[in-house]
């Protein structure tokens, strides 16, 4: 029996994990979702930004991490639009420009915001850290046109915008490099712009030191962070819908870890 359990076919584990995710998605449990301080900090900071101010969002993710990153981008953009704050979006990832388009299409319609007046999508720019530095010197030379190749001078939202000094906050929703870390290292460290961020769960642990050193306003880590922001915004989005499944799957994995350790030590005793 012990031998059988120790050599359990991994496909059985896959099946259990699949069921642990699938069942709560079909039959939601409505488990509570407590808001952590790093997420609350971003929400509170946005609440202090005066109406009509400018905030930039860098969409540094692609379709492969859409489930984690898009709910964060949606929730933050909704709060900014609800507070009548203008949003300038751009991307350091090639697929980021179309991700930004998705987010602005949904939120712009919901809050009746006008493209070019209340928000703008400047598209993708290669270069990572160098591009971030260039924006700090002159945003117009970095992004002379928007995502549809129309001069940014034609849009009122860009009137008088020169560099980071025009932005009250920068938000990087990132799935890796270049992304949140590069904004902290360049935009915050050199130009002093407050940076808030959302990142995939994989990269969240390496972001906590920046939170501790106050180089970041706050952090949304993975689907959980996105679900917390949705809770603060008082709506049920994709992240909140997935949290039941996430919690049950985690519980199952913890059980598997405990079980495998017990089997390991029992085998060692023998």
């Amino acid at each position: 029996m012990l031998e059988k359990l120790a050599n359990l076919d991994r496909r059985i584990i896959f099946l259990f994990v699949g069921l642990a995710v699938l069942i709560p998605i079909i039959f939601p449990l409505g488990l509570p979702n407590a808001v952590s301080q790093p997420v609350q900090n971003i929400y509170d900071f946005v609440e202090t930004i005066p109406e009509g101010s400018l905030v930039f969002i860098s969409f540094d993710y692609g379709p492969s991490t859409k489930i984690e990153c898009e709910p964060m981008a949606l929730a933050v953009t909704k709060q900014l639009f609800r507070r009548n704050i203008k949003v300038v979006g751009w991307a350091l990832w090639p697929e980021g420009a179309s991700m930004a388009r998705n987010v602005f299409d949904v939120t712009g319609k919901e809050y009746n915001k006008k493209y070019g007046v209340d928000y703008i999508n400047l598209g993708y720019k290669a270069g990572g850290s160098i591009t971030i530095k260039e924006i700090g010197e002159d945003i117009r030379s970095t992004f002379p046109q928007d995502v549809d190749n129309i001069s940014i001078d034609k849009y009122s939202v860009m009137d008088g915008v020169k560099n980071y000094k025009n932005f009250k906050l920068g938000v990087s929703v990132s799935a890796g490099v270049p992304g949140l870390r590069e904004y902290i290292v360049v935009a915050n460290s050199i130009f002093g712009v407050p940076i808030a961020g959302g990142c995939t769960a994989v990269s969240a642990p390496e972001m906590y030191p920046y939170l501790n050193s106050k180089q970041m306003v706050g952090l949304m880590g993975g689907l959980k962070g996105a679900a917390e922001y949705e809770t603060l915004m008082n709506y049920v989005g994709d992240a909140s819908k997935g949290m039941d499944a996430q919690s049950i799957a985690h519980l199952l994995i913890v059980l598997f870890v405990i079980m495998s350790n017990i089997i390991f030590f029992m085998q060692k005793k023998k």
């Binding site: 994990v17 995710v21 859409k66 489930i67 984690e68 769960a201 994989v202 499944a245 799957a249 985690h250």
Partner: peptide
């Protein structure tokens, strides 16, 4: 956190 990220991807496909 890595487990959380991988489960999130599965959640995304099921959603």
């Amino acid at each position: 956190y890595t487990v959380m990220a991988r489960i999130s991807l599965l959640v995304g496909r099921f959603l």
